[in-house]
């Protein structure tokens, strides 16, 4: 029988335009490759292998299972990724030798610790702009750290790793959430009827309410409303012609500058949508329903009377 099962050689296509994708192995692997190039690397390699296996066991004990081969393998991937994350965020040139020097200077354990601290910091930032009491539960916090750790730090040394990019993206997202939450919390603190104290927070809704109520002119900051307040507002603004921009500028003047971009973004969004509807002849009930559903969300107090 002739063996024709050999893979056929794929003819190389001449200079096909490809999307620009850079794939690279985890940073730890790059550093280790650099170590292989160094003369007289025996001792450093031995120290590293001791440290790395020690870390792997600790990770297995805490997160996977140190009593099965599978658990140890998982922990091994997590160790590679977490150290790579530590290296990637350290502001050193993207170059194996520099990464290696960094690793050897600090020791694998400390670099792992840096990586893990990044994960913990990231986990401390809000995942959404909707906070609940639940988020303060230590058990939930631990679980969130574990989830992020597994998501970002799983790196197979023989394939490409993008955990550092995932981390950066997630960091920016959450920073953004953090600003929105901070803005909403500031508005809540300045609420005209005294600070709103509620462990649950729908930050978008708080901002929406403040922006919508500011159209009525220079008045107190409103962070939480009842349906009746909405009705009063709509009836009021329909009666007398008013300068919306002046009202908004008055609001901006009261709010710290760091929150301005967030509020402005919201104003631009509302100017031709919900604000138009508020001022139009649309039935008040319809407008209120829309505000309830799409803007004020859970920051609208339910009227029982």
């Amino acid at each position: 029988m002739t063996d024709n099962s050999l893979p056929k050689r794929v003819p190389e296509k001449p200079a096909m335009k490809l999307a620009h994708i850079t794939t690279r192995p985890p940073h730890l692997v790059q550093a280790l490759e650099a170590l292989g190039q160094r003369a007289d690397h025996q001792e450093a390699a031995q120290d590293l292998i001791d440290e790395l296996s020690g870390i792997t066991v600790l990770v297995a004990r805490k997160f996977t299972n140190d009593r099965t081969a599978d658990g140890l393998l998982d922990a091994f991937y997590l160790t590679v990724g977490c150290i790579s994350l530590g290296i990637s965020q350290a502001n050193i040139p993207e170059d194996g030798d520099a990464q290696l020097s960094f690793l050897l200077h600090h020791g694998a354990e400390h670099v792992f610790q840096m990586g893990f601290r990044h994960i913990k910091e990231l986990s401390g930032l809000p995942y959404t702009v909707f906070l609940s009491d639940f988020d303060n539960d230590p058990f939930v916090q631990q679980r969130d750290i574990k989830v992020l750790f597994a998501e970002i730090c799983r790196a197979d040394p023989i394939s490409a790793w993008t955990g550092d990019d995932v981390y950066k993206r997630e960091w920016l997202d959450r920073q953004n959430n953090q600003r929105i939450v901070a803005c909403a919390q500031w508005l809540r603190k300045k609420h005209y009827a005294g600070p709103v104290k509620d462990p649950d927070l729908d930050a978008q809704a708080v901002i929406a309410i403040a922006v919508i109520f500011a159209i009525a002119g220079d008045g107190p900051i409103v962070a939480r409303v009842r349906q009746k307040d909405l009705e009063t507002l709509i009836q009021g603004v329909r009666k007398t012609p008013l300068d919306i921009e002046a009202g908004w500028n008055a609001l901006l003047k009261k709010v710290p500058a760091e929150y301005h971009p967030i509020l402005r973004e919201r104003m631009d969004e509302y100017r031709n949508t919900i604000v138009k509807k508020i001022l139009s002849k649309t039935r008040i009930k319809t407008v209120i329903t829309e505000i309830q559903n799409s803007y004020a969300g859970s920051e609208l107090e339910v009227d029982y009377d």
């Binding site: 440290e51 020690g54 870390i55 600790l58 805490k62 354990e109 400390h110 610790q113 893990f116």
Partner: peptide
């Protein structure tokens, strides 16, 4: 270098 032990998670 003395090992950090469990402190690597701190």
């Amino acid at each position: 270098r003395p090992s950090l032990g469990e402190n690597i998670f701190e």
